[in-house]
Structures are given as structure tokens and as C-alpha cells.
């Protein structure tokens, strides 16, 4: 079955991203297709590559990057929510005249239409939040 996931919260503050990650891994292991994972609200903060959690804690952002690499996942970060919160890829940072970018590997920034399209194209949409 084709599944999509929406994540509304950032890492560490809430369990939402952790649960979504475990759910995604289980869905892939069961042979389902993850059509898209869409990061919205503070969920865009999962996509920063500048987080440095303590060594004995999980690295939420790096986990997503690794899962994406392994299974060719489409990790989409909402551009409007990302701009509000300072999550930028190199192209967007340049366009905005900013001196830095922070989007982690495996994520891409795009519009809210990607969430709607995920709902249209997928058999199920599961939302994780606070």
C-alpha cells in the first residue's frame, strides 16, 4: 500500500518525529511504499543539519537522512513553515541574501501543494504531532 506521513513537531521537544520514524521503518519493512514524508509547523526543524545532540542520544535529523538514503525516501520540508523558522537550503539562502544554509542531506524544500498531492496519491496519510 502507498502511505504518506505528515510530521508537525520538531525533534526532541515531542516524541512525534521519533514515532513517525519507527512507523516509517516498520512500514518499509512490511513492504509498503512511503510516497512522501512531509514536515510542517515546527516539524521543519527535523531538517537542520546543524543539530549536535549528546553522543548518548539519538540524532533525529541524521536518522531521517540515513533512512532516506537507504530507501530513497522523499522527505519534503514546507517552504513557508521553513522560511518562518530559518530552515534553508543553499539556493533559498542565496535568494534571500542570507549568509548560511542548514538543510540536511536527503531533505528537499517545497510547497504545501506537496502535502495535498501526497494525500491524493497515497492510500493513507498518517499525521504525527504534539
Amino acid at each position: 500500500m502507498k502511505l504518506s506521513i505528515q510530521i508537525n513537531e520538531g525533534p526532541y521537544q515531542h516524541q512525534a518525529s521519533d514515532t513517525a520514524y519507527q512507523f516509517a521503518k516498520a512500514a518499509i519493512a512490511a513492504g509498503h511504499e512511503i510516497f512522501r514524508i512531509f514536515f510542517y509547523h515546527d516539524g521543519v526543524n527535523n531538517a537542520t543539519r546543524l543539530a549536535v545532540p549528546p553522543r548518548d542520544d539519538r540524532d533525529v535529523s541524521a536518522q531521517w537522512t540515513a533512512l532516506s538514503k537507504e530507501h530513497d525516501l522523499d522527505l519534503v520540508v514546507c517552504i513557508a513553515a521553513a522560511q518562518r523558522r530559518g530552515v534553508m537550503d543553499a539556493a533559498e539562502a542565496k535568494r534571500q541574501g542570507l549568509d548560511a544554509d542548514n538543510l540536511a542531506e536527503g531533505f528537499r524544500i517545497s510547497g504545501l501543494g506537496q502535502l495535498i498531492e501526497a494525500g491524493i496519491q497515497s492510500d493513507r496519510l498518517v499525521v504525527f504531532g504534539a
Binding site: 500500500m1 502511505l3 512507523f23 516498520a26 512500514a27 512490511a30 509498503h32 493513507r124 496519510l125 498518517v126
Partner: peptide
């Protein structure tokens, strides 16, 4: 989590 995935599949929406 496997059971969670199955439940999502077995229901019509979430």
C-alpha cells in the same frame, strides 16, 4: 510498530 502499520492499512482512514 508493525501492528500500527497493519492497523493503518486495515482501516479506511486515520
Amino acid at each position: 510498530y508493525d501492528g500500527f502499520v497493519n492497523m493503518v492499512v486495515e482501516h479506511d482512514s486515520v
